[in-house]
Design a protein around this nucleic acid. Structure first.
Lengths: 300, 300
DNA sequence: CGATCTTACGGGATTCGTAAACATA
DNA sequence: TATGTTTACGAATCCCGTAAGATCG
């Protein structure tokens, strides 16, 4: 025989166990005294035994009542903890977000936004993976990330992609480089010059190669980190093509940047998330925050 | 803001979390499907967040739902344990009884009764103190015993006494003792003979002395245990006066017993229990059992 | 006799089930 | 279109509060 117990009953029981007075316990429970009495009686009937020895003058726990008191306190406490925890999640006072995004976003645009989010939600745990686009998508697919900002689409039965923003590629070179004279260089202008590139896994590399196609670029070096590329350029290793959001790596007096001409030299950044699952409250909060503040000064 | 949760809600939630299907979970919960749906919705509203991502085709726990699932299982389990434990106590399948009673009762009359009780209620823990009357009463007063069978009254604001049974004193002596010839000896007959007595703490001793008053008895030895008294009598140390319920100690071919004459030579045995507290279910069960089977062959 | 718990009872909120509407694969 | 969830609504149930009754110190 399975029996229903509610936290209200437990609270009422414990109020009476503590105060040992129906009238006061009823007031504390926001009930009329007869209603409170009925509630205790119902609980006793459910359990099949008396919890209180009562006369008009005294109310005392029975032996069994004392046993039940221990359990009741524990159960009520845990139930209230569970509810409070859920409410904390609902109020964005607790939770966890796992975000995967491109290193170029993670270094430049994200930090101030994330600082604001953290200030508003100090107890939401943040888990940021600054990895390449493929890895971003894979993390969402596997559930390790709630959503991702990546530069590759991923529309599968489980994943959903939407455009977040786009940024144009810029030429970067030393101030005294011949190409520095051009206001809006085109890919054809660049093709002949020695070029420092990112590794073949990089989506930036893919897009640069695709934009140059069928021309072959004169790649003199491949690196993994844009900050390393900047160092090479300063040392005179050639030029590079870099998306606008990553230009801060090249903010140096010896270097200049020039926006590239041509529609292919524009990178799109997507939000990738699971199609079937909703975001957690915390993830949804960050998601909305990020979507409301795309890289502002930049064109869509 | 304090929120009410019931085990019914938790059961419903877990049924849906397990089955991931409203219709089946509703049936399992003995509810119509719309009623079940409303129940889940109410729970979600109380917590302030969605617990399930649902379409008509799939029902899945949200991130928060999975968190809640853990707590819900724990809370429900503990609540059910607590209720089941109370029901077990109510059904006399669990519990504890602490009984204090005179050694003479504990050795002779009690064991078979207690064996029957134990057979019927194997999981009720029995705690028997076979101690002298004063100690019996003290144990009830202090709460170490639920009730006692003692030979002294104890009517105080906290204790209540009622008659349980009575037994007459018998003379015990060697078969060849002069007193063995009397059918119904009186205290006057005994007074002159050497007598082996129990210690001054014993209520039997008190009563014997009181019955003899103002005569002085010719006490040759004081012992604590009746079985030792029996040994002394067999060895010819004299006679003794023993309540009927303790006569089994003297069941020996060399010894004879004779019922004493006179109203003072009758011992009363009382049930002593607390006035304010009810007995636990287990104690009440034993109490009723004992009260229904007073030492049968003996007069009241 | 006064304080306190219990019983009695009418009114109101809650919750149920049936039926229809709605949504998704 | 078929399966399965939500909405709509009348009805039964449960629970509350007021008032009267009972009980103990």
């Amino acid at each position: 025989m399975q029996i229903d117990v509610s936290t209200r009953q437990l609270r009422a029981f414990l109020a009476l166990a503590d105060g040992r007075n129906f009238t006061r316990a009823a007031a504390q429970t926001h009930l009329s005294q007869p209603a409170f009495s009925a509630l205790i009686r119902a609980l006793e009937e459910q359990l099949g035994l008396r919890l209180f020895d009562r006369t008009t003058r005294s109310v005392e726990l029975t032996v069994e009542g004392r046993l039940f008191e221990e359990s009741a306190r524990r159960v009520l406490h845990e139930a209230q903890e569970a509810v409070a925890d859920m409410q904390a999640h609902a109020a964005r006072r607790r939770g966890r977000v796992s975000l995967a995004l491109l290193p170029s976003l993670a270094a430049g645009w994200l930090p101030p936004l994330l600082a604001g989010f953290r200030a508003r939600h100090p107890d939401i745990h943040l888990d940021v993976a600054d990895v390449l686009s493929e890895d971003c998508v894979e993390r969402v697919r596997s559930g390790r990330a709630d959503f991702a900002l990546a530069s590759t689409r991923a529309d599968t039965p489980e994943l959903r992609t939407e455009l977040f923003c786009s940024d144009g590629f810029h030429l970067v070179c030393r101030r005294n480089h011949p190409l520095a004279k051009l206001r809006l260089p085109r890919i054809a202008d660049v093709a002949a010059h020695p070029i420092v590139q990112l590794s073949r896994e990089s989506s930036v590399r893919h897009q640069v190669e695709a934009a140059a196609h069928p021309r072959q670029l004169n790649t003199v070096m491949e690196l993994d980190q844009l900050s390393s590329v900047a160092g090479m350029l300063r040392a005179g290793f050639g030029v590079s093509l870099v998306p606008e959001l990553a230009l801060f790596h090249f903010d140096h007096p010896e270097l200049v940047t020039r926006p590239m001409q041509g529609p292919k030299l524009r990178r799109q950044i997507f939000v990738v998330r699971r199609r079937d699952r909703s975001l957690s409250v915390a993830a949804q909060a960050l998601y909305e925050e990020l979507m409301a503040h795309p890289p502002g000064a930049l064109s869509r």
